[in-house]
C-alpha cells in the first residue's frame, strides 16, 4: 500500500508539471489584463492536436510539433487579446463571456476537424518505463516534467530579471503607475498573452505525449488551471507550482485509492475547502499581510 501511495504521489508530481504551465499562463494574463481567459484550455487543446496531426498525418515525432503548436497557440492568444481589447465597457464580465464564446468556437472546431474520438500517442520511446528506485513513470512523463520545470524557472527569471518581465509585473500591480514610468501597457499585455501561449503550447504537446486528448478536454483544463490559481492565491509562482502539484497528487491518489471516475471531484472538493477556509488562497493570505 505504501508503495502504491508513494507511486501516486510521484505520478501526481509529474502531471503537476503541465498543470503548472497552464495555470501560470492563466494567472499571467489575469495579472496584466484582469481578465480570465476562458479559452485558455482550448489553446492547450489545439496545441495537443497539432502534436496529434504531426504524428498521425505526417508520421513524425510529436515533439517536433512544438514549433507548430507554438505558432498556433500564440496566434490564438494574440487574436483573443485583440478581441478582448476591443471590449469597451464592463470588461471584466464581458471578456468572460467573449472568451467563453471563443472557447466554444475552438472546442467545436476541434470536434468538426478531428471528431470526438480519443487520441493518444504511439510514438516509439514515449511509453518506455523509467525506474527510479521503487517509482515508475513513462519516459515522456519524466521528460516533460523536467521540461516544464525548466520553463517555469525560465519564466521566473524572465519575470524577475528581464525588462519585459518586470513590465508585466509593473502593469499587474498598478497599470496607471506603470504607464507613467514609460511602460506601454498594451504591448505588455500582448507580451503576457504570447508568453501564456508559449506555456500553453508546451503543455499541450506534453499532454498529448503523456495522456489522452479529446475536444472536451479544453474546458476541463481551464477549470483546473483556475482552481490551481485559486489554491495558489494570485501572484505567486511557487504558489502555482505547489497548487499544480497538489491537484496532480490529489487526483492520482483518488485514482489509486478510490476510482478514476471521481478523479476531478477531489480536486474540486479541495478547491471548495480552500474557498471556505482560506479565501485568499494557500499563499495569498501570507503575502497580503507582508
Amino acid at each position: 500500500m505504501t508503495a502504491l501511495i508513494l507511486q501516486s504521489l510521484y505520478s501526481g508530481l509529474l502531471s503537476g508539471g503541465s498543470y503548472a504551465l497552464i495555470a501560470l499562463g492563466l494567472a499571467l494574463v489575469f495579472g496584466t489584463m484582469k481578465i480570465i481567459n476562458l479559452a485558455h484550455g482550448e489553446m492547450v487543446l489545439l496545441s495537443a492536436y497539432m502534436a496529434y496531426v504531426m504524428e498521425n498525418r505526417l508520421a513524425v515525432n510529436p515533439l517536433l510539433a512544438t514549433p507548430l503548436a507554438l505558432v498556433v497557440a500564440c496566434l490564438i492568444a494574440v487574436v483573443v487579446y485583440f478581441l478582448v481589447s476591443r471590449i469597451s465597457r464592463n470588461r471584466e464580465l464581458n471578456s468572460l463571456i467573449l472568451t467563453f464564446g471563443i472557447g466554444i468556437i475552438l472546442t467545436n472546431a476541434a470536434l468538426i476537424i478531428w471528431s470526438a474520438d480519443i487520441h493518444s500517442t504511439s510514438a516509439p520511446g514515449f511509453q518506455e518505463p523509467v525506474v527510479l528506485g521503487p517509482l515508475y513513470s513513462m519516459r515522456s512523463e519524466l521528460g516533460f516534467f523536467v521540461a516544464s520545470m525548466v520553463l517555469v524557472a525560465a519564466l521566473w527569471w524572465w519575470l524577475s530579471r528581464s525588462w519585459y518581465g518586470r513590465a508585466v509585473r509593473a502593469v499587474s500591480s498598478n497599470r496607471d503607475a506603470a504607464k507613467l514610468m514609460g511602460i506601454n501597457p498594451h504591448r505588455t499585455e500582448v507580451v503576457s498573452f504570447v508568453v501564456a501561449g508559449i506555456l500553453a503550447s508546451v503543455a499541450g504537446v506534453a499532454i498529448y505525449s503523456t495522456g489522452v486528448i479529446q475536444p472536451a478536454l479544453g474546458a476541463s483544463l481551464t477549470t483546473k488551471a483556475f482552481i490551481i490559481t485559486v489554491l495558489a492565491g494570485i501572484g505567486s509562482i511557487p504558489g502555482v507550482l505547489v497548487g499544480a502539484v497538489l491537484i496532480g497528487v490529489v487526483e492520482a491518489l483518488t485514482v489509486t485509492l478510490y476510482s478514476s471516475a471521481i478523479q476531478e471531484l477531489t480536486g474540486m472538493a479541495l478547491f471548495l475547502l480552500v474557498l471556505f477556509v482560506l479565501p485568499n488562497g494557500l499563499f495569498g493570505a501570507a503575502r497580503r499581510r507582508g
Binding site: 467573449l98 467563453f100 466554444i104 468556437i105
Partner: peptide
C-alpha cells in the same frame, strides 16, 4: 459541432 455557431454569436 454545430454549437460553434453559439460561440460566434457570443463573440
Amino acid at each position: 459541432g454545430h454549437q460553434i455557431i453559439f460561440g460566434v454569436l457570443l463573440g
